[in-house]
């Protein structure tokens, strides 16, 4: 049972990849990439998790001596989310450009390179 969370992460990455390969619409492709990237969030958080440990923010209830979940992977996760959001925005902008230039967003019908 201990690898269950890791398997969920791996499954999300693979399902996102399958979605990208089968995609018939560039917007759908971008959403599939987001699904694949969310697998990396689950993996990072699963690595940092400890049973019963509180969040790594100290205050009146969590003293600095308690064992918290790993803050380093959470900070990596923050970077991951920001980069994922910017990549999504960039790819959607490219999809808009492709739609305006070629009149289609089906990757199978995009055969030529045009500026």
């Amino acid at each position: 049972m201990s690898i269950y969370a890791y398997v969920v992460a791996g499954a999300l990455v693979l399902l996102g990849g399958i979605g990208i390969a089968r995609s018939r619409d560039l917007v759908h492709t971008v959403v599939c990439l987001s699904v694949a990237q969310s697998g990396t969030y689950v993996l990072l958080l699963a690595i940092g998790y400890q049973n019963g440990a509180p969040a790594p923010v100290f205050g009146s209830t969590t003293k600095p001596t308690t064992n918290v979940v790993d803050p380093v992977v959470q900070a990596l996760n923050l970077t991951d989310i920001v980069v994922s959001a910017t990549v999504t925005a960039l790819l959607l902008a490219l999809a808009i450009r492709v739609a305006r230039t070629h009149g289609t967003v089906d990757p199978d019908q995009l055969t030529s390179l045009e500026g």
Binding site: S2, I3, Y6, G10, Y49, N67, V68, V69, P71
Partner: peptide
């Protein structure tokens, strides 16, 4: 390959967190 790698990772929810012990 992923499952083979996951089987050798530290168990989920264990108390082994060297980065945490350095960062806190």
């Amino acid at each position: 390959v992923m499952v083979l790698a996951f089987l050798r990772m530290p168990a989920f929810g264990s108390s082994y967190h060297p980065y945490r012990d350095a960062a806190v």
